[in-house]
């Protein structure tokens, strides 16, 4: 089987978020970029399966829609263990652009399993996986928290309200994964980092797509209010503050 993992290039989760151009663009100055955490967990699970079932998984490819600056993120995925990288040379303006670009390349290849993180940690759109499966006319399974290949068949588990659901699907399909799919991302080994130098990273020119979304403005959340400490015996004051100040009761 051939697995494709779609990876986004996102700001490190500890980045201090700032905006420019009258709050219409994210200020990228000094930002450290990483593999989107959900995508990295999807890749980790794919690698775990490949390690455990030699021969079952033939190849793991990672694909990213981004300009040349995203290549270090793709190299990191190769250092962790992916066999090949593909970069579609386009700015990932919105979910439809990304899904369209991915669909065009994927439709010309023969992947059996396509994995996407449930969302990207920067825009939290939750859109690309669903759009991609629709554009490819493939089945999709969302909120996948466990993924395995048993006797040549794919077994997926989904978190549902109050329990877990086990699903099987024909291949090819799009799996939209959430946390839980792998414990924690892998740390690249020295050998992996060294090997990433020579692994293939193909750059594919983008197709023309529509950008359906225009971002009007971005706003930062209000700063967290200072913590107020109330004597445990003074329940009356607590209730009054929750009612009058916090306005939550």
């Amino acid at each position: 089987m051939k697995i494709l993992v779609c990876i986004s290039n996102v700001p490190d989760t500890t980045t201090k978020i700032k905006f420019t151009d009258n709050n219409t663009a994210f200020d990228q100055a000094g930002v450290q970029w990483i593999i989107n955490p959900w995508d990295e967990l999807a890749l980790t699970r794919a690698l775990d399966i490949k390690d455990a079932q030699a021969g079952m998984v033939e190849e793991i490819t990672v694909i990213n829609v981004g300009l040349a600056a995203t290549e270090p993120t793709i190299r990191k995925a190769l250092a962790i263990g992916a066999d090949k990288g593909i970069r579609i040379n386009a700015e990932p303006k919105d979910a439809f652009t990304v899904a369209s670009q991915l669909a065009d390349v994927i439709s010309k290849e023969s992947f059996d399993i396509i994995l996407c993180g449930i969302e990207s940690s920067d825009s939290n759109g939750n859109n690309v996986g669903g759009m991609l499966s629709e554009l490819l006319d493939m089945p999709s399974v969302s909120s996948v928290s466990h993924f395995d290949i048993k006797d040549g068949k794919v077994e997926l588990k989904r978190e549902i309200d109050g329990g877990q659901e086990t699903v099987s699907t024909p291949i090819p399909f799009v799996g939209i994964v959430q946390k839980g799919i792998a414990k924690e991302p892998r740390i690249p080994s020295m050998r992996g980092i060294m090997g990433a130098r020579t692994k293939p990273l193909q750059v594919i020119e983008a197709i023309q797509t529509e950008t359906l979304t225009e971002f009007a403005t971005y706003d930062l959340p209000k700063p967290k209010a200072a913590c107020k400490k109330i004597d445990p015996d003074n329940v009356k004051e607590l209730v009054q503050l929750l009612h009058n100040e916090a306005k939550v009761i």
Partner: peptide, 19 residues
């Protein structure tokens, strides 16, 4: 050791990291 940090500068032909 598994990650290769103990021999990280050694020539890969001797199983090092080559860093």
């Amino acid at each position: 050791a598994e990650l290769g940090f103990l021999g990280m500068m050694t020539d890969p032909k001797y199983d090092g990291g080559g860093m």
